[in-house]
Design a protein around this nucleic acid. Sequence first.
DNA 1: GGAAAAGATGTTAGCGTTAACAAGTAGACC
DNA 2: GGTCTACTTGTTAACGCTAACATCTTTTCC
Lengths: 338, 338
Amino acid sequence: MAERVTIKQVANKLGVSMMTVSRALNNRPNVDEKTKKRVMETAREMGYIQNHIAKSLVQKRTFTVGIVVPEITHSFFPDAIKGMEEVINLAGYQIIFTHSAEDSKKEVAAIETLASKRVDGILISMAESVRDFSIYKQIINMKLPIVFFDRCVHNLGASCVGINDDESSFNITEYLVKKGYSKIAHLAGPTTISIGRERLNGYKRALLNSNIEVKDEYIKIAGLHETGGYEAMKELLSSPSDQLPEAVVCVNDPCAFGAMNAIKEAGLKIPEDIAVVGFTDDIRANLVTPSLTTIKQPAYEIGRKAAEKLIAHIENDSEPVEDIYLATEIVERKSTGI
Amino acid sequence: MAERVTIKQVANKLGVSMMTVSRALNNRPNVDEKTKKRVMETAREMGYIQNHIAKSLVQKRTFTVGIVVPEITHSFFPDAIKGMEEVINLAGYQIIFTHSAEDSKKEVAAIETLASKRVDGILISMAESVRDFSIYKQIINMKLPIVFFDRCVHNLGASCVGINDDESSFNITEYLVKKGYSKIAHLAGPTTISIGRERLNGYKRALLNSNIEVKDEYIKIAGLHETGGYEAMKELLSSPSDQLPEAVVCVNDPCAFGAMNAIKEAGLKIPEDIAVVGFTDDIRANLVTPSLTTIKQPAYEIGRKAAEKLIAHIENDSEPVEDIYLATEIVERKSTGI
DNA sequence: GGAAAAGATGTTAGCGTTAACAAGTAGACC
DNA sequence: GGTCTACTTGTTAACGCTAACATCTTTTCC
């Protein structure tokens, strides 16, 4: 990297002190207007660019926040990041982006690097494989604010922004019940992450609420991806034909796409033989055949809200820790036979 | 932010100098193994986390690279970013992520912030609206390496990684010609960015190459989004029926989706009345009806390659500036009537 | 056994900036 | 004219770390 112009050089050229230059460039009060103008001009002419690193060192603020996502290509995350970026940028901060690839080790490494880069706060959606929350506790103990989004950990002293998974899952299951289905299966997510547990719970509550027995044979752990959904559905389809489910609640849309493929491969029709619902409203949900009834998750708004909460925590020590749930809605399409 | 443990504190606790601690923590030679161990342990016990900001200040290296993308939700970019992240992370660097939202002012601001945060290099895919390259020149002049990806600017002294837009566009147009189409229209991108100009050029070359006249009425500027494609296609469809095109080459897949909607709305059939091809191989291309024949752009590989080139530039002053083109392929689907 | 080499540790200074205090300058007012 | 106030500018030190050099200790080898 070539030599960069420093405040000192600008000050020397103008025959003033570094402090005067610093004050002028940062638009502080108590600097003569004429001096300010002269400094600004000279700095521009000389190609001066502020050294944020040095500034961060003395101010102990970097105006940078870290983001940790488990999977960037899953459409929820780009949307959420877009929302975050807008809020964070407007507040005058930058984003250090890290990716855990659903790997808890990589997640820990990412968080440690963010801490060493002295970010002012961190937005995390935890990796599937995380079992140990001690890194979160450690970070929170250092008073480095964390806001979880989408995938939450409670009772750790960090805010979380997401949807009410339990309730949303309850709603879409109930929607199926009201449509007249009673043999309803669930392709569940990993029970290690909150969305897996809570969506399963909502599904169970909805059945019990309508006096439908919850059968273990109807619940298969499928994971969050298409292949998992495909495999789990194939397993369900191997049941004796009088015990086949009439409808399936999938933990998310990719899982539902996999399940739909398995159903079609078995020569069954959606929704005539088996109805399917997803969760996310993936960009593809409207395009698959038949189009998928699902829960619309407001990714962009979750991103915005999480970022707003984080900035609030950063700028105000007494900002209360809280869980924020955004509303979801059922998007009716053809996989449940409109 | 709470007080953080410093090297000085660790040194005092152990009764050694700061240098010894620094050397031990950075795993430098010429430190006694026992001392190293003691330091490591004490540091961990005390909860020491390296201050990368201070380190960056003295070393004049941040081990951070900036990424500037115009649109995070467009599926090409998440894929590209994923590739970049893997390479960058493995090389021991972090990413500062910025988003220009296709706005040249935001792009300039982002680049300036990245420079002031003293990133070691920048990966840019320029915004549509950029007319003025002086910020790029300024950055390159400071010896801060830039690698453009997907959307290139040539002759500026920066490497670029992308596909050969001209050739790919030539290929898919020729593919239509070989299928027997001769009335072939083009919904073009903005001519201000390289992909717009070069894809248009490839389209023209392919027609000329087969002795088909290039008609201005068959070329409409549609932009890069669905709505632009829709509007431009509607305009084309308003031609007298004997002058309607039989096939349309769209600048990208979203544009093609818009065009397909316009065609369907007009009561025409794809591909029987009008064939459509796109460019990108968006995640939706296989799911729309009919599925879209398109050019597969290796987003992930472009991301990896661009990141590799940037790291090479950062770590080796004499790394040659070059344009790198990755191969594309035509994905045949039903919109051209297999 | 002693000189040279190698290894371990320490000291000083500086990276570019700003906080905190100090000092100088001009205008206001009696 | 002198004192007070308000504004402008300057000085010093520090942020946490490491490069470069200096010093001390141990090992090696004739």
